[in-house]
Computed example of a mutant assay.
Amino acid sequence: MKTFDPVTLATPLFILTIILEIVFSRLGRLKAEYEAKDTAVSLGMGLGSTVAGVLFGGVIGATTLGVHQYRLFDIPMTAVWAWVAIFLLEDLTYYWFHRIAHERRFWWASHVNHHTSQHYNLSTALRQTWTGGLAGTWLLWLPLSFLGFPPAMIAIQKGISLVYQYWIHTEAIGRMPRWFEAVFNTPSHHRVHHARNPRYLDRNYAGILIVWDRLFGTFQPELDEEPCRYGVVKNLGTFNILRVAFHEWIAMAQDVIRQPRHALGWMFGPPGWSPDGSRQTSHDLKAEWEARRTAPTDLDRAA
C-alpha cells in the first residue's frame, strides 16, 4: 500500500482556515481572538516542530523498524480490521501519552509550550513542541510496532489523529450534537483541556475519542457558568519564542542543580511539586478551589 503523510497534505488547509478564522472574526461573523505576536509564536513553534521532527525522524524511524523486526504478528495494511484496531490502539496510546505529559514534569517540560497561549484559536493547534524527540514520548508507540502493525501504518494513524485535533482548537464552534459530544473529542471538550480554571485543570486528554476520558475518570464538560480562561497557571508574559520553547526545561534544571538530592521529585513529580510543599500542583489548586466553593457563606452561618 502506498503511504502518505496526512499532516503534510492538510497543511494548506491549516493555513487557509486560520486566515478565514481571522477574517470572519474581524467581520464579527464568528468568535475568535487573535493577537499578532501570539499567532507568530504559534506559527514559529509549528515550523520549529517540523524541523525537529526531521532531525529526530531518522532515530525514531530506525528504532520503530528495529522493534518491528521482532513483531509478534504480521498485520497487513490492507485489512479493514487492522485499520480499526490501529485507530483504537493508537488513540488509547495518545490518551496515556497526553495524560503523562500533563502529570509528570519531565514530559510537561516538552508539552507545556502548547498551552502557553492565552488565546484559543486555530493557530494554537500549531504551537507544537520542539523537544518531544528528546523527551522520548515517541517510545510509547513502540508496542504497536512490536505487536505487528507496520511502522508506516502507525505513522499514518498518528498523522490522522493530529489532523483531527486541529479543528477542535477554536471558540468559533459551540457544542456538537449530543451523540457526537458523547463519543468524540470536540472544540467544547478541548477548550476545557486548554483552560487554566482550577475546575478544568488536567482534564480531557483525548485525541479523537473522548470515551477514554470518560472511562478513566478524567472527563469534564464545559460549563456555561464558568467560561474557560486560557494559558498556564502562571502565564509567561512574553512572546520570546525561545522562552516559550524551553522555559520549563530551564526551570527544572535550575531546581535540580539547587537541590540535587530531590532530583527525582523535581523531574518526575507532578508540575508544581516541591519538597517543602511551597508550590502548588494542579491537585492542590483543585483542592483549594473546592474548599472555597463548598465553604459556608455568612448567610449560611446566619441561618
Results as ranks from 00 to 15, higher is better:
residue 183 V to I: 15
residue 158 K to T: 12
residue 210 I to N: 00
residue 124 T to Q: 06
residue 211 V to M: 07
residue 242 L to S: 12
residue 227 P to K: 03
residue 122 L to T: 03
residue 166 Y to E: 03
residue 182 A to Q: 02
residue 175 R to D: 04
residue 220 Q to G: 04
residue 176 M to V: 03
residue 225 E to A: 14
residue 125 A to V: 05
residue 228 C to D: 09
residue 245 A to G: 11
residue 196 R to Q: 12
residue 251 A to Y: 06
residue 151 P to V: 08
residue 152 A to T: 11
residue 176 M to S: 03
residue 253 A to H: 04
residue 158 K to A: 15
residue 253 A to C: 11
residue 235 N to V: 09
residue 251 A to M: 13
residue 175 R to P: 00
residue 186 T to Q: 02
residue 248 E to N: 12
residue 151 P to W: 13
residue 206 A to E: 00
residue 227 P to M: 04
residue 230 Y to M: 07
residue 234 K to Y: 13
residue 139 L to I: 15
residue 125 A to S: 14
residue 149 F to Q: 12
residue 150 P to I: 02
residue 206 A to S: 11
residue 166 Y to G: 02
residue 214 R to M: 03
residue 180 F to N: 00
residue 126 L to W: 13
residue 253 A to F: 13
residue 164 Y to S: 01
residue 236 L to Q: 09
residue 237 G to M: 09
residue 216 F to E: 01
residue 226 E to L: 14
residue 245 A to F: 12
residue 244 V to K: 01
residue 129 T to Y: 06
residue 201 L to K: 02
residue 196 R to C: 13
residue 225 E to M: 07
residue 251 A to R: 14
residue 204 N to E: 09
residue 144 L to N: 04
residue 173 I to L: 07
residue 138 W to M: 05
residue 123 S to I: 08
residue 236 L to T: 08
residue 238 T to C: 10
residue 132 G to M: 03
residue 185 N to K: 00
residue 195 A to W: 02
residue 197 N to L: 12
residue 136 G to Q: 08
residue 144 L to Y: 05
residue 136 G to D: 09
residue 249 W to N: 05
residue 218 T to P: 01
residue 141 W to D: 02
residue 247 H to K: 09
